[in-house]
């Protein structure tokens, strides 16, 4: 695995070359390379990474760190057309405030993120600014208003009735 490690180091170096001072930290996680950037440099970093050859988004992941009052959004990106880059997965991450969760959408840079950003929006209530079509995807407005994947949403037993929030129902964009 010596060769593999060397390659990883070189991809980390080339990431540092591409993103330069956008990077807050770069870390080798298990199975991907986690690159943390500030929220205001997210779009710029995404554009640079796309030019570098990372052509699609595999997953848009939000993690709720309720104790720190933060959300961490990670775009796991990789490449189809560049065979060398397709071996690596980069996690382009940013941390946002939990009380006012906003971040710029990357759907215009990577179209493949469009539906996944919609999913994160409905499950966490995170707003993606400039998203071309930010609507609910999987959930109904009643359930989406509960923001079910946040840590403060506790799963009730199936027999319990979920309280219906009609104000949220009327306020949410629906078909």
């Amino acid at each position: 695995m010596v060769g593999g490690e060397k390659k990883l180091i070189s991809i980390q170096d080339s990431l540092k070359n591409v993103l330069k001072d956008n990077i807050i930290s770069i870390e080798q996680a298990k199975g991907y390379i986690d690159v943390l950037v500030p929220t205001d440099k997210l779009v710029d970093s995404a554009k640079k990474l796309k030019e570098f050859g990372f052509d699609h988004v595999k997953s848009v992941t939000a993690v709720d760190y309720i104790a720190k009052k933060q959300f961490k959004i990670t775009y796991h990106i990789s490449s189809y057309l560049n065979e060398e880059l397709s071996k690596y997965i980069i996690g382009l991450s940013t941390i946002i405030n939990r009380d006012d969760p906003h971040l710029p959408s990357l759907s215009k840079i990577w179209v493949s993120a469009e539906f996944q950003e919609r999913e994160v929006y409905e499950f966490f209530g995170i707003i993606f600014d400039d998203h071309p079509d930010l609507r609910l995807l999987l959930l109904t407005p009643v359930v989406a208003a509960l923001k079910p994947l946040r840590k403060d949403f506790v799963v009730k037993e199936e027999s319990d009735n979920i309280e219906v929030d009609y104000a949220a129902y009327n306020a949410t964009k629906w078909w």
Binding site: D55, H56, V57, K58, Y80, L81, W110, V111, S112
Partner: peptide, 14 residues
């Protein structure tokens, strides 16, 4: 090929 890459299509479809 480019559209499939852009949309992030997977599997046999890609």
């Amino acid at each position: 090929k480019n559209l499939a890459t852009e949309l992030g299509i997977v599997g046999p479809n890609l």
